[in-house]
Design a protein around this nucleic acid. Sequence first.
DNA 1: CGAATTTGACCAGCGC
DNA 2: GCGCTGGTCAAATTCG
Length: 210
Amino acid sequence: MAAVGVPFHAKAGNMAHFPSRSQGSSSSNSTPLHADAAAPAFDLSDFIMFDQAEFAPSSFGPEPPVVPPMVDGGRSNDQNSNLSNITINSGDMTVNARNTGVEGERREETSRIAFRMKSEVEVLNDGFKWRKYGKKSVKNSPNPRNYYRCSTEGCSVKKRVERDREDPSYVITTYEGIHNHMSPGVVYYTTQDSVSGRYYVAGCQVPPDS
DNA sequence: CGAATTTGACCAGCGC
DNA sequence: GCGCTGGTCAAATTCG
């Protein structure tokens, strides 16, 4: 099953980009997670993050284009390891993606992606329909954690949403699992910048009457 | 009235 | 074994 990632409701043209492996050795010169100047201002709520196995999910169609793994926020993907992490930091957002698997045996289809972003609303419109099934106050945090499950029949993707205990203006969202269906209202695509080699991911909401 | 949300109870994992 | 914590369940409640 192909990794599907976490599509977000995004305005057309808004993009997030990820640094290529070849750059980023200097943390002070790390690429910020913003759109290029030519693109409309990047809204953090539009950010899309994918699981590392097939990093860029692209068009979200039945046969997404193959995009080479390139995420490296301080460590490279280790093909000999069934556990890898992706960490990207910028001033406004932190992303962590994780794939877990069982040593030796078949790989467990568990994909976990967490990111922290500045948002007034806790529940983002990511194009999927979520059903809340739990709320829990967590240790060391004054803010409760909300638990959501994808309401699409047969889809077991879950997400946890909580406000950052240090800065309540930030929302920490953790997605777990892979959607086995397409988002009902969003089309996704990726492009690669020929100069920098970076991959751009964008979501475009399909007009209701199209 | 059906669907979604709320919320207390319950369960499992982990550390001591 | 016990208590703490995080995650899930499910009945009650609210909402559209």
